[in-house]
Amino acid sequence: MEIKLLKKGYKNNEQFYKDFLEDQVKNKEEYFSDEVAFIDVTPDFPIYIAQGSESTKSELFHQAFDAISDSYLHTNRDIHFDELFWHSLLAVYKRDYLLEQYPQINDGLNHFNNIVLKDFNWENYIYKCVLGAQYINDAISDVSERKRYYSLIIDNLDVFNYIIKYEIFRNDKFLINILDIIDELKLSKVLKSKITGRDDLGKDERVGRRVIFEFNKSYPIIMSPMLEKDDLKELFLQYLVYYYQDTKQLQLIE
């Protein structure tokens, strides 16, 4: 199908929001540029996964990963990695679904901005899922294996967020290696834990984030995205020790 692309100026636009609520956007030529994107099918999937229990969220993430893998990933990146495509698709073609799933959109422009017109970066749920699904799909061919990796992402969302937040780590091999290391060493809990005794790092600093940051600081001297898993594991543990000194836990790892 053909997706008519919006023209610049729709963001943070009260009238556009009003027209969205009143289902008028599609009727107003002035919102559209002449450009279109083509995509075969555009199934609904959860685009905003901030609420609910961990198991609910996990379920929603799986739905999103599956839908994106099945129907969106094969398009050119100029489409599935394009904010304008997603904003156009959501605001013009997914209105009913969105209002049904996220009724808080009715509550104000800020909700609309935060759910529908959210900037397409690492904080955006579609972005997270597109990137995650792409890396897993490209590297892993077995369907149940893919599911396992999706689960690893969902279980380690905090680390995943930090990986895709830094441009240098937006890379399939690095992501999968890190997920493997976490899985093999059963570090999920450790990485989520708060760092103690380091007031200089702020109150809510997590071990996982700091390990990823240490990789960031070491780049490009250490070209971590290209390292083999075992080389990466060695460094991972070295950096982990900087922030996590519970020897009992670490002995378990070794």
Binding site: H74, T75, D78, I168
Partner: peptide, 30 residues
């Protein structure tokens, strides 16, 4: 030698001295 191509994300290619080009599918780079 490692060729780094960064657009929305990063791609790394090991380059041998005799390599003259690398190709990337349009579905994987914008």
């Amino acid at each position: 030698l490692v060729l780094v191509i960064q657009s929305k994300d990063n791609k790394f290619f090991y380059i041998k001295p005799e390599d003259k080009y690398i190709e990337i599918q349009k579905s994987r780079i914008s």
